[in-house]
Nucleic acid binder design. Structure first.
Lengths: 204, 204
DNA sequence: CTGATAAACTTAACACTGTTAAGTTAAATT
DNA sequence: AATTTAACTTAACAGTGTTAAGTTTATCAG
């Protein structure tokens, strides 16, 4: 019964079509101006049709975030292969994180600020499989490498990961939510922040 | 004409009454569940009445944020008087910032994430007088002291201020928006972050 | 080819939101 | 007492996410 498979494929294609339109609308108009009704209008269907392909708005936003997370995970694994020095890996990974965040402000907003959080609480985030979670774990592994290689001072990998993570996050969030922030050039501030953090944990 | 002054005082009293009710509703139900209509219901007036005392929702939220900012500025000036060592001042100020942020999650949300930002862009924030701005400037002065006293390595005060600011901000934001975050105890993570940042800029 | 079944999609509504123009009531002034 | 001013409300606009119910369209069995 190839007809059933064909239907499934068509359904999947439509899902992707909606997702693409959603991303466009999202990037074009921004998070605040995005609505299910506007998306429906854009694809030329009634709002209810979207609900046949996505449970609700959150499910749609989740799908969009996973798209972005996939890109990140890809780049992260690439970095891990390209270098041997774990500190170099970490530096590259952190700078990439900054860059991705600043270049995809709207995705970032969804990722972190949609109530009550698309990925749920931190516990739920770590339990439920997702590409975003894999990205986080890959990042933590790099931090572990830095500590295990004795290039970093002795410290709890979990805590250090969180400190790096949280600081970078703060920079991105400020840049996104406060237009014209920071005074200092964003690229320079990003590099300075990453270097400061690494300096704080580097031996001697 | 004392009657006009009395009216003005009554009007001011009502403004405060609305503000108090708003804060209650805000703390009780959280930012997401706060609405002008619910506030109106709480104080027993029609929604439109609020608009006679506050231009719009943003004006009301702004007033609430300034209340919190005033508390912060008070504590900050207290810290500046209590200590002589600028690094100690900075450490205290940073820890206080973390504490205040974590203890007032909903105010913090308004402060930073209401579109397009209650205090406007960073440029507008720095130009227009506000208590929040004064707090930021007081904080920057402490950083300057640290650099001028040669206890810190040579660096641009503006950039360093932003790095501290942004990192602390990230910790608060993550804690607020991701329940159960971080894994590490919040107080410990806060202290570790502050110490890491200071260590990165401390001489030798 | 016809009738039943299942899938796809829409209409119309619900319960909200912030905001405002216009109308009403109560108080103060002339 | 008549008029002006202030305080407050009603009713509406334009929007939001979401869903129950109805309609159209396509697939399947006999």
């Amino acid at each position: 019964m190839g007809i059933r498979e064909k239907r499934n494929r068509q359904k999947e294609e439509f899902r992707v079509k909606i997702l693409n339109a959603a991303r466009e609308l999202f990037i074009e108009k921004g998070y605040e101006a995005f609505s299910m009704r506007k998306l429906a209008h854009k694809i030329g269907f009634s709002p209810t049709t979207i609900y046949l392909y996505f449970k609700d708005k959150d499910a749609l936003l989740f799908a969009m975030c996973e798209e972005l997370a996939e890109q990140c995970l890809l780049e992260l694994t690439k970095i891990r292969k390209q270098h041997i020095d774990p500190v170099k890996k970490l530096r590259k990974a952190l700078l990439f994180h900054v860059k991705t965040g600043l270049e995809n402000p709207d995705h970032y907003k969804v990722l972190f600020f949609v109530h009550p959080g698309i990925y749920g609480s931190q516990t739920e985030f770590m339990q439920r499989p997702s590409i975003a979670r894999d990205t986080h774990l890959a990042f933590k592994d790099i931090v572990k490498e830095c500590i295990d290689s004795k290039l970093f001072i002795k410290a709890d990998p979990e805590t250090v990961t969180e400190i790096f993570y949280v600081s970078i996050h703060g920079l991105i969030v400020m840049s996104i939510f406060k237009s014209n922030y920071p005074w200092t050039d964003r690229e320079i501030l990003g590099k300075t922040l990453v270097d400061s953090l690494i300096r704080a944990y580097l031996k001697q």
